[in-house]
Design a protein around this nucleic acid. Structure first.
Lengths: 366, 366
DNA sequence: CTGAAAGCGCTTACAG
DNA sequence: CTGAAAGCGCTTACAG
């Protein structure tokens, strides 16, 4: 009937059953280790399975079991990549995804990855389609309003990695507060920098908002002079960070003694822009990041930053989601600890990493 | 019956139909834009869908349509990560996956990611389970024997990214030959290095084998003295590369004038090991890589390497796979071009990137 | 231990 | 244009 005849009909459980001379129920039982099939039956079935190269259809199993063993992960596809280093930022996402994958694996789940474009139409519909293919949903970025989350959450449990918990979804994130607090303490109290700015990330990012808020509170409490506001608005990207610095310098403003960047990418861009104008880091201006992406230690100077347990973020996201499948209720948020990583961009020199032991420090670090 | 009562029954198409006062066929039609439902019907259905937060079940659709709109991607999970930079190697995989995802998106497909551990039992069974959840399979690593591939290929089309094409699967890869050829030409002819080694990657990796073979042929043809063999056996990892150098030096052997490493990770490890012994790159020994991962340009000295079009690898893998769904036959392999990236680890100094235009060169490169 | 049968939630000829 | 019904390929009570 179709124009193209199927290369070869894919065998179903019926084919296996008839070849083995048993019922489909028996086939299913031996394949899934249910009941206690006679050894003879078992053998016949296995032989037929092998002979036919039978592979059970996942969709049919899912429909029957009401379980797909799939967790969907969605992120927002960014725009262009201007700085070559920008590609690094993938890493952050991807390491989280790796964590999700590892945790999923333990439960026999696979990970369905999907992205939505910044200017895709009808994002809620796309997400619904994805949710329909999975048992649970992890959202990297804030792509749904609270009511939209609530609607979807009736279908699958949802964990968000950006944003705040909602009545219907769980949030997993790092402890932005103590990260910024440690940074401020180090810069203001230990280094004695009295004039300090926050180069912000995405304006609508909850993480960024949280960092900005703690920055202001803590820097103020520490007695530092603060620079914030529209002139310091970045977007988590290297270009964003570079642009802020460039405009600031173009407008003839004085730079603060230290710049706390919303993330490592931003710091990278800022440092490039400063270098281009001949401003020395950390001698003229100290710069710090947030995340501790791998490239952070390769910058000149090596970047002082806050390390997030990136992979654990993913593992936790899955575990929390998993425990929510089938059961409602439970915790609404999980906050993971961070660690201050002191390198040289803050003004320290060759100071070793502080904190709990990790893999042996790479030689480039010593 | 179950211990936990379902939080709230998830609405099905039947619920929508009865609430809208139409048949499930009509609901399906308006939801999928099939036929030409009356405006009135359309309105009633949409209202009910909204009221119930209805999301069609993907498994049921897939079963009915014989199409899951899912492509599975499987890679091999590595062991420990010793060098912190090693995490970079993720990037290679992840950038390919991003390419797959982008291409998949265009066709309305999502990407099912799964990994198998190096010492997982019954890999073929795991892969069969994954294949059962998808319409096509992309294998990053060589995890199946040819007969095993043949069996699975009866169920879903398969594209391999490592390995050679088989009668039943398609291979997508980069042009290892011309990459190595360009490297040899540059090192032997242009720099005049007469003694040169190949620090190999995974012993059973087809890419590695191809590179090694071309290395020997070309270096020989160029009249260089060649060092290869067990002493030069790495494993694509930084530790692997470092170990080779360390043992070589421990055994008191003379180093060649130039070392062509199987990939960037290996080069990174080798350079660390050389630096630790006080051997200067490129003055004492030139080192080159393969891949051009982002960190390559941050090494000291910046790494001369061969750039693979990583994302395109993924895009191509999906496209080729997609065109194979439903239809059999077609091409059995696709080979993508590479580009020599000359930096400083070969002995050149501050020479700009050669080749077709890319994004503006990052400032760290000038 | 095993089989016949119902059911999972969709899509789509087939009639009307 | 619309509905009743079959069918997609599994799993699993329920009888036997």
């Amino acid at each position: 009937m179709a124009g193209v005849r199927r290369a070869k009909a894919i065998p179903t459980i019926y084919d296996v059953a008839s070849r083995a001379g048993v019922s489909i129920a028996s086939v299913s039982r031996v394949l899934n280790g249910q009941g206690s099939p006679k050894a003879e039956t078992r053998k016949k079935v296995l032989r037929a399975v092998r002979a036919l190269s039978f592979v059970p259809d996942g969709a049919a199993r899912a429909l029957s079991n009401n379980l797909k063993e799939v967790v969907a992960v969605v992120f927002r596809r960014g725009g262009e990549v201007a700085f070559e280093d920008e590609e690094e930022s993938l890493l952050f996402l991807d390491v989280i995804n790796r964590g999700i994958e590892i945790a999923a694996q333990r439960r026999g789940f696979d990970v369905l990855i999907s992205s939505v474009g910044t200017n895709d139409e009808n994002v809620p519909a796309r997400l619904a389609a994805i949710a329909g293919k999975a048992d649970g949903l992890i959202l990297h970025d804030q792509m749904l309003s609270e009511p939209e989350i609530a609607r979807l959450a009736d279908v699958v449990p949802i964990v968000t990695l950006a944003g705040r918990p909602t009545p219907k979804s769980i949030n997993v994130r790092c402890d932005n507060g103590s990260g910024i607090r440690a940074l401020i303490h180090h810069l203001v109290i230990e280094h004695g920098y009295r004039n300090i700015a926050y180069l912000s990330g995405g304006a609508d990012s909850p993480d960024n908002l949280a960092r900005a808020r703690v920055f202001e509170t803590e820097a103020f409490a520490a007695g530092a002079q603060i620079q914030v506001g529209p002139a310091w608005q970045g977007d988590y990207s290297a270009v964003g960070g570079a642009n802020v610095i460039a405009s600031l310098l173009d407008s003839g403003r004085d730079l603060p003694r230290a710049i706390v960047c919303a993330n490592d990418q931003t710091a990278l861009g800022a440092m490039h822009a400063l270098a281009r104008r001949g401003i020395k880091v950390p001698d003229d201006v100290a710069v710090t990041g947030f995340d501790d992406v791998p490239v952070a230690r390769h910058l000149h100077p090596p970047l002082t930053t806050v390390r997030q347990p990136i992979k654990e973020l993913g593992v936790t996201a899955f575990d929390v989601l998993y425990s929510r499948m089938g059961t409602a209720g439970g915790q609404h948020e999980v906050v993971l600890p961070v660690q201050l990583i002191i390198r040289e961009s803050c003004g320290c020199s060759h100071r070793p990493v502080v904190g709990p032991s990790r893999a042996p420090v790479a030689s480039s670090e010593t």
